[in-house]
């Protein structure tokens, strides 16, 4: 079975975010970028399915400017077989990304598409679900367990009340949650090998998809800072403050 894994280049999760003083966005100049953590989990899951003999080929795709080829190489170093870069300088919204990925799904005909549930920059949590809807496919979002079972995949999902398991007819779309797996580190030999794996480049403009969103970003601000309060000496003082000062108990 072929697995398609879309990956996103995003700010490294350890970097402290700074909002630009002109409120136009977040300052990403000279910032460390990385593969979005949830996308990394998606790559790892695909690689494990290949190691189990379930998957035969893993295609990693990323959409963005030339720099996102770094993240495709990361996916190749982790075990993906080939890469596809859909190049655009434009910053895209989830719906536009999903429409481009729909074209990739039509061309590649994967049995499974595994994506991160959200990216840690825009925090939208939309692309996988939108892609599934556009392709008319079922979805297993926020997955903590993925089991291929003949022509179906059973996905255990992290939901608000606990866990839910659904059976999806293949082909299907899965989005990853944190506890699906712990991604491996790419070994140096595999990083070297990844440089020789095939990586196709296509222009986003050639896909016949409208790339402009109807949602405009008006401004980006830093959140209101919460002021720290006081240290109390002991439990008695804490309880007294909560009763008499904060009046919450």
């Amino acid at each position: 079975m072929k697995i398609l894994v879309p990956v996103k280049r995003a700010i490294d999760y350890n970097v402290k975010v700074r909002v630009k003083s002109d409120q136009s966005g977040v300052d990403l100049a000279n910032t460390k970028m990385a593969i979005n953590p949830f996308c990394e989990i998606a790559v790892e899951e695909a690689v494990r399915l290949k190691e189990q003999g379930v998957a035969t080929e893993i295609v990693a795709v990323s959409i963005g400017d030339k720099a996102c080829q770094e993240q495709i190489r990361t996916a190749l170093a982790l075990g993906a077989d080939r890469g596809l870069h859909i190049e655009t300088e434009q910053s895209l919204e989830s719906l536009q990304v999903a429409k481009l990925l729909q074209k990739v799904v039509e061309a590649e005909q994967p049995q499974l598409v595994i994506l991160g549930k959200q990216s840690i920059d825009s925090d939208n949590n939309q692309t996988g679900q939108m892609l599934a809807a556009l392709c008319g496919l079922p979805q297993g979002t926020f997955a903590s367990k993925v089991e291929i079972n003949g022509d179906k995949v059973n996905v255990t999902r992290e939901v608000d009340g606990g866990l839910q398991t659904v059976a999806l007819a293949l082909p299907a779309v899965v989005t990853t949650d944190l506890r699906l797996n712990e991604p491996r580190y790419a070994s140096l030999p595999n990083i070297m090998k990844a440089k020789r794996k095939p990586l196709d480049v296509k222009a986003a403009a050639d896909f016949g998809v409208e790339l402009t969103s109807k949602v405009k970003l008006l401004k980006v601000e830093a959140p209101a800072q919460r002021q720290g309060g006081v240290k109390v000496a002991d439990v008695a003082e804490l309880v007294a403050k909560l009763k008499n000062e904060a009046k919450v108990i």
Binding site: I11, K16, V17, V19, V26, I120, D121, S122, D123, V215, K216, L217, L218, K219, V220, E221, A222, P223
Partner: peptide
């Protein structure tokens, strides 16, 4: 956005 480290108006 960015885990609440920035607030966007759209």
């Amino acid at each position: 956005i960015y885990a609440g480290n920035a607030i966007a108006t759209v």
